[in-house]
Structure formats: C-alpha cells, structure tokens
Design a protein around this nucleic acid. Structure first.
Length: 489
RNA sequence: GGCGGCAUAGCCAAGUGGUAAGGCGACGGUCUGCAAAACCGUUAUUCUCCGGUUCAAAUCCGGAUGCCGCCUCCA
C-alpha cells in the first residue's frame, strides 16, 4: 500500500461556479484529477497561451509538491473549421496542419519549462467516444438531428447558464447570436456537423460528419478522469460558451455532476490593449524568446495573480528580467561559496519559517505573487550571510540555498543552469547589438592593461564605451566579469 | 441591453475587518582606484472620490467617477 503523505493543510481554490474561494477536497483522498483545455492547432502559440500553460503548470507542480497524485489531462483540438481553413491556405492536408502546429506547441512549451501532462489526447483519436456521447444525448431527448447537423437543446437542460451565471431568457435579448433558422433556440449549439464536400468526416448513426468543439472536451475529460472529476481549467474566455456547454451536455448525458472546481486564468493585454489577431498585436512565444529568457515570462506571470488581467509591456518585462537575474546570481554566489568546502549540514530556522509562509501563500488560491515575495526574502538573507564573510555561516547558507532552490523550483524558476542563463543573456544581447563576444573580451583585456598601468582614465573610457552598448563590467576578486544590463530598449 | 471584474507609491504588484508584502527605479551609506554587483538605510500616516456600518475599514454597505472583460472563434 502506498503511503500517501498529502499535506492536508487547507488548500483553498477559487471556484468560478460559486464565485468564492472554497476548501479543496478531492474526490479521492490524496489524488487530484485535473483537466485543462489545450489549444486548437492551427497556428503558433502566443504569450496568452503561455499564460494559461504557465498558470496550470504551476498549479500542477504545487499540487504534486503537496504530495497529491495528480492526473493531468490537456487536449489537442486537431479537427476544427480553422484547421480546415488553414489546410486550404497552406495547401497541405488538414492532418499535416495539426502535426505541424503540435510540433510547434511542444517546442514552445518545452522552452518554457512546462511539464508534460499525464495524458494529452487528440480529438481525432476519440471520435468514437464523441459519437457515443452525442448518440446518448439524442436518445435522452437533449439533442436533435436536422439534416445531419446535431444540436444540443439548451431548453432541455434546466441548469443551463449556471456556470457563467447567465439567465437563459436575458441572454436571448441583447446577444449577437447567429440566427440559424434550423435551430430551435438560437443558443443551441452544434454537437455534430454534417460534412461538406471535401471536408474530413467520420461515419456516425446520425450521419457523416465531424464533432463540434465542445463535445471533444466532454468526451476526453470523462474518458480519462471519470465523472465527476476535481478541477477543470482554462482561460477566462472559455467560461462561456465552451465550459457552459461542456457542463450542460455532460451532465445531461450522465445525470451526474461534471466538475467540482472550475478554475479560470485571466487574460493578457499588450500595452493596455486586448491582444488579438485583428488588431495585429499578438506576440508569439517564439518572438518573445528571441529577446528574453523563458523564465522571465514565467516570473512575469507569476508576479500577478492568475485570475487578474495582466498588461504585457516592455518595461514590466525588463523589470522582471532584472529581478530574475538577481535570483540566478544569488544561487550562483551561494554555490560558489560552498565549492570545495566540507561542512556539516545544519537546518536553518529562518528558511523553515519562509517555507511555511510560502506554503500558506500558495494554499490561498495559489497566491504566487505573495509566494514570490518570500523567495526574494530568502534571496536577500542568503546574500546577507554571504556578505558577512563568516565562515561559520556556511552550513546555514547551504541549507538556505537548498530551500531557495526548492521553492523556486516549485514555481518552475531557477530550472536553468547559471552558465546557460548567463550565456543566453549574452548571446541574445550581442546578437541584438550586432557584436560578438571577442569584441567585449578584447575591450576587457585592453582595460586590464590600462588598469595595471594605473591609466584609470583610459580604463574608464573603455568601461563607458561598453556601458553604452548595454554591457556592464564587474571587477571582482576573480577578475573582471561582464554582464548584460537587462533592459532591452 | 445583460453579466462580471478592476482602481494601492515614480512604475509593476500582493493584501477581504486589526493598522500597508515583494519587484523595478531613485537617493544616501558600506565596499571599490572610481564603478558595478551585493548588503544596510530612506522612498504610500495612506489605498480614485463622497457618504455609511464598526472600538477598528484599502478591506464591509450605499453612491459617484474612470478603466476593462465576456455575451461571436479565442488561453
């Protein structure tokens, strides 16, 4: 028998359906079943997708760190109108569109340090499960078939609107809903779409066609996690209609509750404007990574509450990048100080204290911003001890640094090596400035000569010249080192 | 028209009844040839405004103003 050691301290989770923070009680003690809506694979991901990925990755990491056995499912929507359109645009089969952008998705997620979920089902691998679900909805009178299109009847489900808190009748009036003459109620949504000429299709008792978007997540989530399951997540925009529809069709089909906790992350704006393809202000993850370390984006998102909207702009990212650099240098200093020294491990009371505060913050609906503040406290404490140059403090520094790394790791930070972190910063900067490393190294060599000759004027000229190019010099006991000023502008 | 959110220092931002976390920046100090980094200190008597409840309010209630999201594919 596995000894489950879940830290049962009260984790609270904000539940969209109640609008309140609730005590988190999983269906099965010690286990969490989590489903998050993935992406539709018809384009490269942007920094908004990254927010959702980072937020739920952090929850996943934290739940695991508390000792929960987490089953995490994230789907790929690989059949959809947009994918079909893209296949025409790029003149490649629709299957290839999916493969191409799934590969792009993994490239981005791996770069961002997003852990792989337990299961990553693709919609097209589960068409049979969707057909079964649609079929049962027809038989139970919750769906109707018109010319091969199958619609869910919202009037047949009493609780429709419960999640998004939209009373049915009020929605009808002002809503800009496509008037489809075939539908009984304008809010009825497609469970199955009859295939058109030249479109991908599957055989079903109710006609040849393909699944609607909402039914995919219902089929795949219940298949992998059962019914009900613990947490269903996604971006805030999915509350209506996607999650409302998932809930309606699943509960109508099973007669049981679908999900216990609904969790939604807030949106990303760019320079106070909504990020959208029509405005043309989207920023892809790949573009972001040309200029910054992946963890800068993570630190940026985690310093905001996951439910708040967040405004992306150059200044904020530069600020956070400077802070990230400080964390990396703190750990580096601590490890350098320990190199080649032997000492007895000793637990450090202040580190334990900070650990406790960290857990309290994260238990309060994943308050990552507060949790981060405790990591910075610890960073400060480590640097303070290092500055004291008290040899006896080494065991304390070692233990504080261990805690520091462990807490940062729970948030997916400090996962890179110092060398890689520093090199990436240098390479990105030099590429941007059109310089190469030998230019900097030569300048440093000249300056060392000048300093030896006590020609401080020349030495300072060289330093100023480099500073203008965003390169700063540090004269340390180990020699002259260089770093990049983190501001991109 | 319906539903919901937000307003905290120069900037970003946490904080839902007990007297304002943290980051970035700025200034002063230690260190240094001078710097940088790091550390120490300073940087919101006050949380958009007006009124109310309370011994006590950034936090609760009422009102005003401003900004934003969803209701259409969307993380």
């Amino acid at each position: 028998m596995v000894n489950i050691t879940v830290n049962a301290m009260a984790l609270k989770v904000y539940n969209t359906i109640s609008g309140k923070k609730e005590d988190f009680t999983p269906i099965t003690e010690g286990a969490v079943k989590l489903y998050v809506c993935g992406v539709t694979v018809y384009d490269h991901c942007h920094i908004g997708h990254a927010r959702s990925a980072i937020v739920f990755d952090t929850m996943y990491r934290y739940l695991r760190s508390k000792g929960y056995d987490v089953t995490y499912v994230r789907n790929f929507t690989d059949i959809d109108d947009k994918i079909i359109r893209r296949s025409h645009e790029e003149n490649i089969p629709w299957q290839e569109v999916g493969q191409k952008y799934i590969a792009s998705f993994y490239e981005d997620m791996d770069a961002l340090g997003i852990m792989r979920p337990t299961h990553e089902p693709r919609a097209t691998d589960h068409i049979g499960d969707m057909i079964t679900l649609v079929d049962s909805l027809i038989k139970k009178g919750h769906a109707y078939n018109i010319d091969g299109d199958v619609y869910f009847s919202v009037d047949s489900f009493r609780n429709y609107g419960q999640l998004s808190k939209r009373p049915l009748d009020e929605m009808m009036s002002g809503a800009r809903v496509d008037v489809d003459e075939k539908k009984r109620n304008p809010l009825d949504f497609a469970l199955w779409k009859a295939s058109k000429e030249g479109e991908p299709s599957w055989d079903a008792p109710f006609g040849k066609g393909r699944p609607g978007w909402h039914i995919e997540c219902s089929a795949m989530s219940t298949l992998f996690l059962g019914n009900p399951f613990d947490i269903h997540g996604g971006g805030k925009d999915l509350v209506f209609p996607h999650h409302e529809n998932e809930k309606a069709q699943t509960e109508a089909a099973t007669g049981q509750k679908f999900v216990n906790y609904w969790v939604h992350n807030g949106f990303v704006n760019i320079d106070r404007e909504k990020m959208s393809k029509s405005i043309g202000n989207t920023l892809s993850i790949k573009e972001f990574l040309k200029d910054y370390h992946p963890e800068a984006l993570r630190l940026f998102y985690l310093s905001n509450h996951y439910r708040s909207p967040v405004d992306y702009n150059g200044q904020s990212i530069d600020d956070v990048n400077t802070a990230l650099q400080r964390l990396y240098y703190t750990r580096h200093r601590a490890l350098e100080a320990q190199k080649g020294k032997s000492f007895e491990a000793r637990s450090f009371e202040q580190a334990e204290e900070i650990n406790k505060k960290f857990i309290e913050a994260m238990d309060d609906d994943f308050n990552t911003a507060l949790a981060l503040s405790h990591i910075f406290e610890l960073s400060k404490e480590i640097n303070r001890m290092l500055d004291d140059k008290d040899a006896g403090a080494l065991p304390l520094i070692a233990s504080a640094n261990q805690m520091f790394e462990s807490l940062a790791g729970t948030l997916g930070l400090l996962e890179d090596s110092f060398e890689s972190f520093e090199n990436q910063a240098k390479m990105r900067h030099l590429a941007r400035m059109g310089l190469d490393a030998s230019f900097v190294e030569n300048a440093i060599r000249d300056r060392i000569e000048a300093r030896k000759a006590k020609n401080f004027q020349k030495a300072d000229e060289i330093r100023n010249m480099l500073a203008e190019k965003g390169i700063m010099l540090l004269d340390t006991p180990q020699g002259t080192q260089w770093r990049i000023k983190t501001s991109v502008s």
